[in-house]
């Protein structure tokens, strides 16, 4: 039976390790999962490593250093299915804030001897470099969705991961709308569901950690936020966090720039 189990590998690029930790956070499912798949390369959890090919590769993190390019191509070439997990891998992550700044200056702010540090000018998602079979969003990803994705690919079906907005999840949870009822700035209307609408459940606005939903209307939301009294620099920062480089949020942040017209 062991010989026929599909192989699973987990790889890391620039990231906080939280999304691969999500796999270890599946406390009840981890051992049963390990019976169904053979985990052949997961450095955070095991010192036993076997070369590919892999039936399913989970990739965390974004591309930020020159050697990442070769490494991700090699992983792709060795993987039947490649799934990216988390905001870093799907949108460049918080470290993509460098994309809007001068990275040389960043390096000098941080390191006394910047010449030791080799880094790319941008932080980019995996999808920008190789074909990705599925992108699982979130900062961090949700473990129920992660298990759904793994199960789906093992069963050779497509994962059931809704791309609707956080608003729908919020209504199902029975939350009071923090934007309408309290005037609290909230990115829920333009953000993909999956977290369980936790921020509104804790009396705060959504901060967009799952990235843009399928059919967002960011200009409309921005108008509402400006009417609530949000100043352009704050509005720009609102879109520029963990998914700053996702196209919809990037455009909304640019439109919110103090130098551009308010949308």
């Amino acid at each position: 039976m062991a010989a026929t189990r599909p192989t699973l590998a987990v790889f890391k690029f620039a990231s906080c390790d939280g999304c691969q930790l999500t796999l270890l956070d599946c406390e009840d499912e981890l051992l049963p999962l390990a019976d169904r798949v053979e985990i052949v390369d997961f450095r955070e959890a095991s010192s036993a490593v076997r070369a590919g090919p892999y039936d399913l590769a989970l990739v965390e993190g974004s591309v930020t250093i020159p050697s990442d390019l070769e490494r991700i191509r090699s992983i792709r070439a060795n993987s039947r299915v490649l799934v990216t997990i988390g905001a870093c891998a799907t949108a460049g992550g918080i470290q993509a804030l460098r994309n809007f700044a001068d990275v040389r200056e960043f390096r000098e702010v941080v390191y006394a001897r910047p010449e030791f540090i080799e880094t790319l000018a941008t932080s980019t998602p995996i999808q920008d470099h190789v074909k990705v079979d599925f992108e699982l969003r979130g900062c961090p990803i949700n473990k129920v969705q992660l298990l759904e994705v793994i199960t789906a690919f093992l069963g050779r079906r497509s994962p059931n991961v809704p791309k609707e907005s956080v608003c729908l999840e919020c209504k199902r949870r029975g939350n009071v709308c923090v934007l309408v009822a309290h005037g609290t700035p909230c990115l829920g209307p333009v953000t993909q569901a999956g977290c369980g609408a936790i921020c509104p459940a804790f009396d705060r606005g959504c901060y967009g950690c799952f990235g843009p939903q399928d059919t967002p209307n960011a200009p409309s939301l921005s108008r509402t936020l400006v009417q609530l009294g949000m100043e352009p620099p704050a509005l720009q920062r609102f879109y520029r966090t963990f998914n700053a480089n996702a196209a919809v949020f990037r455009a909304a942040a640019e439109a919110a720039s103090p130098t551009s017209e308010v949308p």
Binding site: F13, A14, T64, I65, D68, G93, I94, Q95, L97, R98, A101, V103, E105, F106, R107, V109, V110, Y111, I117, T119, S123, A234, R237, T241
Partner: peptide, 18 residues
């Protein structure tokens, strides 16, 4: 060799609440 992510640099200009 974990790639640097420059947190201390991009924290500049963010609100203290963030």
């Amino acid at each position: 060799f974990e790639p640097p992510r420059f947190f201390e640099a991009f924290l500049r200009g963010r609100s203290y609440l963030e």
